[in-house]
């Protein structure tokens, strides 16, 4: 009887090792699926068909001296947008250093491109002036005038890993 118990214990030990690995893999796969399939908070009038869900880019204000732009304010980029001082820009910066149509962000083949629209004081990505269209990567810092945005791509990073 005792010998049988020992035998069961011995193989339960091995079984637990295998079971651990199965659960580990299962949870990691679930995580990966969630990262890919995170639903967008609001599809809105989405123009950029290639960009869905968690892939949607955002601009987050991380430094601003202006009253109507607070730190932490987020702009979702669900279509091509124009940043500038003018009325028709999608992200309005009431800063004297910003031109009317300062820069635009557009989507091409699933990537976000930033292009300076001939602004007077320039657009900077990570403090490097933008001369020709550049691809934005997650975490890039965009400076227009005195306002600094952070470009955020992977949406899940805001929720999933907290």
């Amino acid at each position: 009887m005792f010998a049988v118990l020992l035998l069961i214990l011995r193989y339960a030990f091995l079984f637990l090792l295998v079971f651990f690995i199965i659960m580990l893999v299962k949870w990691m796969v679930r995580d990966l699926l969630m990262e890919q399939g995170l639903s967008p908070s609001d599809p809105g009038e989405s123009v950029a068909k290639e960009i869905v869900g968690a892939d949607m880019g955002r601009l987050v204000v991380i430094s601003s001296s202006l009253g109507d732009l607070d730190c932490g304010q987020t702009f979702s980029i669900d279509k091509d947008i124009i940043i500038g001082r003018g009325e028709h820009s999608n992200v309005t910066i009431k800063d004297t250093f910003a031109s009317n149509q300062h820069a635009q962000i557009f989507v091409k083949q699933g990537q976000y491109w930033l292009e300076d629209m001939g602004s007077t004081n320039g657009t900077f990505v990570n403090e490097v002036p933008v001369k020709e269209p550049v691809v934005l990567a997650d975490g890039d810092r965009l400076r227009v005038g005195n306002v600094i945005f952070q470009f955020v791509r992977w949406g899940h990073e805001m929720g999933l890993y907290n």
Binding site: S41, D42, G44, E45, V47, R58, V60, G72, Q73, T74, F75, S76, D78, K79, I81, N90, V91, T92, M158, G159, N162
Partner: peptide, 13 residues
């Protein structure tokens, strides 16, 4: 301002 929404960063808790 069409197409741009102000979103509060999602709650962390």
């Amino acid at each position: 301002m069409s197409g741009v929404r102000y979103a509060i960063p999602r709650a962390r808790d």
